[in-house]
Design a protein around this nucleic acid. Structure first.
Lengths: 180, 180
DNA sequence: GGTTTTAGTTATCAGTCGATAACAACTTCG
DNA sequence: CGAAGTTGTTATCGACTGATAACTAAAACC
């Protein structure tokens, strides 16, 4: 007999995946819990019951994205524990651009006190992990994160990434200089 | 006799100022036209009548922020036409953090086609201007904008800027390395 | 002074959204 | 099997929000 229902744990994970897609497009305020529910194929009230509130859903989504980035870096460091190695892995994350864009939306929404703490914590953990994995100096890590932020924002702007919008010459100048 | 009403032009400018404050806090979707109206001290329908729609108001606000950044850079270049000179001016913009955060919200909202074009245009103009003012290479400009994006996001996260939230040790490491 | 233009308001609405409540159906286990 | 726990749904609501319409009053102009 085929199991027709998911366990709460499985559903939780599936909803977070759906939420990454949805929130990446509209941000926190610009996305409805119903959009998330539709992507996951469940009813909107069920989403609320599982997470308690839209805010908790968003927090879980941002935390998931942060965890995934950390995992990517750990994997990369196992092969090449340098900033270049981690950077290459990060850029490949553009193929899962929604992950990065969700983080960006989290950063942008940090003005909300309830979200701010979680977001700062997430970014701080990333900073610490990169220095731990690579032994980079604070200056080197700063430049690494600056480059990462540029990549993230250009991804959000649809200048970088799989579905980049064709654009003006300046983009080519800028993109041509991104280390591969 | 004191003039008790503003011209449409004056009111337009005042509303954009109010919108910078409001949108910086909640982003596009997370801010109501009524919030903007209250800050400016007018009624909500009047805001809509002046700008036509919330989206047009947001676009005017993002354009204003972009123009202001360009103006800051032009002024700075008149004194010190180097990337360091422009960078110092940009960092001083953190005292008007809302300007930078509004731009960030614009970037994050670029997934919306109606906003995306305007936002990419705005960022492209900034890139071209910096290269024109400083004669920087594409690589130098890229690093400049990467650093700028990090500053902007850290400002939005309340890690940098006048009202920075006290935070963990890693912040001190990162901030200590920011060139003054 | 009166008329036209421009700046601004109040009243109102149709649509949307997060959340609650009550109920239904599948699974598990004694 | 049948009871209990878990997974899910439909129905519904109160609050909010952008936008429209109709109206008012201050300036400007002749």
């Amino acid at each position: 007999m085929v199991r027709t229902r998911l366990t709460a744990q499985e559903r939780h994970a599936q909803l977070v995946e759906a939420a990454v897609t949805a929130f990446a497009q509209g941000g926190y305020a610009g996305t409805t819990t119903d959009q998330v529910a539709r992507i996951a194929g469940v009813s909107q009230p069920y989403v609320i019951r599982i997470f308690g509130s839209k805010q908790e859903l968003f927090l879980a989504t941002v935390r998931h994205a942060g965890d995934r980035v950390q995992q990517i870096w750990r994997d990369a460091a196992a092969v090449d524990p340098t900033l270049a190695g981690l950077g290459k892995a990060y850029k490949q994350l553009l193929t899962e651009r929604d992950l990065l864009v969700v983080l960006l939306h989290g950063f942008a929404a940090a003005a909300d006190p309830a979200l701010g703490d979680a977001v700062r914590q997430c970014y701080g953990d990333q900073f610490a992990l990169v220095r731990e994995l690579t032994g980079a100096s604070a200056e080197e890590a700063r430049d690494f994160f600056a480059a990462g932020m540029l990549i993230t924002v250009l991804g959000a702007m649809r200048v970088l990434g799989p579905d980049a919008v064709p654009t003006q010459p300046w983009m080519a100048d800028l993109l041509g200089t991104l280390p591969q």
